[in-house]
Simulated assay, not measured.
Amino acid sequence: MSKADYPYPEDEFDAISPDAPTGVHRAPRSAWSRWWPFVVVLVVVPALAYGAVAYLSRTGDLPVVGGPTQGQDAPAEPDDEMVDEDAGEEDPAVGEGEATPDAEPTTPAAAPVLTTPVAVLNGARVGGLAGRVADELEAAGFTAVTPDNATGTLPAQSVVYMASEDLRPTAELVATTVGVPTVEVNPAQAGSGIKVLLVTDPDA
Score class of each variant (00 low, 15 high):
37 P>C: 04
183 V>F: 07
113 V>S: 00
49 A>C: 09
189 Q>D: 06
186 N>L: 04
63 P>D: 10
96 E>C: 05
84 D>W: 05
109 A>V: 03
203 D>Y: 04
68 P>N: 05
41 V>P: 00
66 G>C: 07
162 M>L: 15
18 P>F: 10
152 G>L: 06
67 G>R: 07
45 V>S: 02
204 A>E: 15
157 Q>R: 14
17 S>F: 06
29 R>V: 13
67 G>T: 06
176 T>H: 07
51 G>N: 09
157 Q>I: 05
79 D>L: 03
57 S>M: 09
31 A>R: 12
15 A>H: 10
76 A>T: 13
51 G>W: 10
40 V>W: 08
93 A>G: 08
145 V>R: 04
41 V>W: 07
5 D>M: 10
200 T>K: 10
44 V>Y: 08
187 P>M: 04
46 P>E: 00
13 F>N: 15
83 V>W: 02
12 E>D: 14
37 P>K: 12
44 V>G: 09
196 V>L: 13
168 R>N: 12
117 P>W: 03
20 A>Q: 13
64 V>R: 15
12 E>K: 14
22 T>E: 11
145 V>K: 01
164 S>Q: 11
161 Y>G: 00
171 A>I: 08
133 V>P: 03
82 M>Y: 05
182 T>P: 01
182 T>F: 08
15 A>K: 15
76 A>P: 03
187 P>L: 06
119 A>Y: 03
84 D>Y: 02
131 G>D: 15
154 L>D: 01
41 V>C: 08
140 A>W: 02
23 G>W: 11
200 T>D: 15
112 P>S: 09
170 T>V: 02
19 D>W: 11
14 D>L: 06
170 T>Y: 05
41 V>K: 03
139 A>G: 11
155 P>V: 06
17 S>L: 12
75 P>H: 08
43 V>G: 11
198 L>C: 06
169 P>N: 07
17 S>N: 14
15 A>Y: 07
55 Y>W: 13
116 T>N: 04
23 G>N: 13
169 P>G: 10
111 A>K: 13
103 A>Q: 15
24 V>H: 10
198 L>R: 01
10 E>L: 15
173 L>W: 02
187 P>C: 09
192 S>I: 04
22 T>F: 09
3 K>M: 11
70 Q>N: 05
122 N>I: 00
59 T>K: 05
23 G>A: 14
86 D>P: 00
112 P>E: 04
139 A>I: 01
24 V>D: 13
47 A>T: 01
89 E>D: 11
36 W>P: 00
147 P>Q: 08
155 P>K: 08
74 A>V: 06
40 V>L: 15
71 G>V: 09
2 S>P: 10
59 T>V: 12
22 T>R: 13
202 P>Q: 09
200 T>Q: 13
187 P>D: 05
155 P>C: 10
122 N>L: 01
198 L>Y: 05
116 T>Y: 01
122 N>R: 01
50 Y>R: 07
20 A>H: 09
3 K>A: 14
61 D>N: 14
24 V>G: 05
102 D>R: 07
11 D>R: 07
128 G>V: 06
95 G>M: 01
8 Y>W: 12
13 F>D: 15
20 A>R: 12
175 A>L: 09
23 G>Q: 11
151 T>N: 11
41 V>D: 02
176 T>K: 14
180 V>F: 08
192 S>A: 14
193 G>H: 06
72 Q>I: 02
68 P>M: 11
